[in-house]
Nucleic acid binder design. Structure first.
Lengths: 211, 211, 211, 211
DNA sequence: AATGAATGAGGTTTCATTCAT
DNA sequence: GATGAATGAAACCTCATTCAT
């Protein structure tokens, strides 16, 4: 036990530095964007020297790519994982309330990745494969199960999944935009609590807009 | 007549240069992103000297801000303007087929603006005020009218509008991501024509997902 | 005439900046070596901004490659060009005295190129093709002519040329080394004037070392 | 015996590490040049940690300086040491064939030292004093002896030595350059075997170029 | 003695912007 | 008005060297 201690402490320090860099990068990329964020800023924010970054990542861009893996895990093990016994309305409400473990924590990361993927084909491909499609697949399975159970009506599960996932993503983006314009935020969200919002979302998705 | 000709030609030339710069910027920002695009690239693409850009725009960033006005006009005069006599399904189908005057032409521009707005508060605010909210307002009006007419059920029109607009935007973003990954594109879109897709979208939005 | 003036002055300024950069680079590369010399040093020495270098050369390495062309011209149009009527001894003496138009001016450049070519295959190839081989060819021609005239004995002209050219280059290198060690310089060159040196060189090459 | 064993093994290990570093440095400096070679590369090649280098050498530059001593020994104990009874032609032929213990093994090292000495006064001085001058002295002694014996004609032995040593060095440099350009190599060396080459060199040096 | 993670100064290169022509 | 050469700040990245383990 004592013999493994130095090795453990090294590994701990290593993990610390790498984690600090990733956290700093996530924060800065989200706030200011990938291109504007400099390696110097990341280093300062992470509390390490600039050169240290390059012990753990071969280039600035590899930090960005690493963030995808950070996002893919929580997305895939999302709250859709075990919904046994919950009502659909409750499941959807939770998905859009996006407060539990997800929104607050991962929205900045997802926002960054989505934004950068707009002009980086590699990133787009990875984001699609490792984050968006796994989530779509989960949603699709959920819908298929419900169709089989006769609760949802016969419609293409993949298209329905796309509708839902689309709304989920847009919620992240739209919330961000609103955060930049307090007046608009008040006007748009003013009269509803987030829970009411989520409730209506779920209601509309389930029941449709038409009478 | 002759006397006005030099003045006209001057104005024409001025308009030409400014327009050329804006078009070049739109194209390049959309393809490669704002940060990666250099003023030199814009100048070359526009067929003017680098210095000429600064006769029309105080800085590179002002070119980007100018693009918003380019986007706001067509958005506001969108296909929702006169839908008198069309069925809801047809209206929505058209909105998502996004073929008429809109998708092909403005998607790259909107994509760029959306992406940059993720880390530029000013831009976010303007995009919200001049592009997104006007569109939301139009959709909301449409929904309110339908509710009054008893065709849509009693639900908050603003939230419903947000659902629709969200799906609209996500379509642009998702299509872009898919364009970067041919395999995924085939898998996701493979079995449906764009029209079928739009049809199902409209159907789900109107009728809801639940039986 | 007046109309061409601005264009001329531009071209003049352009030529000035490029020439200044090349001269500064030659000086600094020779004194401190290619790797140690920084673009900042070159810019300061040339009296231009660091960025200006990149208007004329795509990279620092291209400055070095450009120097080869600077060297190839004077080498090829060297003093071997017209030796009609001079005695062989006189021709060789002049070659090794290397004072006329050559040594002082081009030795630092050749020294730099030779040194860098030791670990840069591209440079080595170009140096060989554009500087060393042309000079060898000239010397070889000269020797062949002399053999035909019955003045030189029947020996492979190419090997003889290599002997001569080798001694020529080594003179440059050895002189540089001696310049770094005043004591050695005194010991080696002490008792001979440069002219006597050159005289004996010529004599030994022509007559051989053996009795 | 047993008591001296740990001390021996320590010395052995020390020698091992130091030797490994020097060998690695020699190899890398020769292949890629001093500036391009990093301490990390040396450490990896030598099979030690980067920090270990600094237990044996105060700085990277001191490794280079140490290499001179590696070169000086074999140079001074070169094949000129005992030539009793051999013909001059044979001695010279051997010197230029540079096959015996010399060329293959030390050419890369000498090449590197020569190249770096072009812009490092300290190194130049040491190279001169410890490698070049000892060799020159040996050659000079040899020539003086021959002059005394009446075999060589009355000429300044030091200048003649310089001619010979110059050709020797240039052979190393020129061979390196040719190795970078296969086409040129074929053209230059094509029709002669190395032995023929060496034979003619010796012949020309002894007999002179003139009839 | 040996390690290798950490450092941070400094290198090359880019690019928005200015200004003399 | 139009040009494009010139600028220089600042970006990303490297690497000789140090030092806690």
């Amino acid at each position: 036990m004592r013999s493994s201690s130095p090795e453990q402490s090294r590994r701990k320090r290593v993990a610390d530095a790498k984690t600090a860099i990733l956290q700093a990068a996530t924060r800065l990329f989200a706030e200011r964007g990938y291109d504007i964020t400099t390696t110097r800023m990341i280093a300062r924010e992470a509390g390490v020297a600039e050169g240290t970054i390059y012990l753990y990542f071969p280039s600035k861009r590899h930090i960005l790519l690493s963030l995808i893996r950070q996002a893919s895990v929580p997305v895939v093990t999302s709250q859709l994982a075990d919904t046994e016994g919950q009502s659909d309305e409750s499941v959807l409400r939770v998905l859009f309330t996006e407060r539990i473990r997800f929104g607050r924590e991962y929205a900045p990361l997802l926002k960054t990745l989505l934004s950068e993927a707009m002009h980086d084909a590699d990133l787009a491909q990875q984001l699609l494969q490792e984050v968006i499609q796994p989530l779509s697949a989960l949603v699709k399975e959920y819908i298929e199960k419900r169709i089989e159970e006769g609760v949802f009506r016969e419609a293409p599960a993949d298209i329905a999944a796309r509708v839902l996932v689309g709304m989920f993503w847009f919620t992240i983006v739209y919330d961000h935009l609103l955060a930049c314009d307090p007046a608009a935020k008040a006007e748009v969200l003013g009269s509803y609590t987030p829970e009411e919002y989520a409730q209506w979302f779920a209601n509309l998705v389930l029941g449709g807009i038409a009478r």
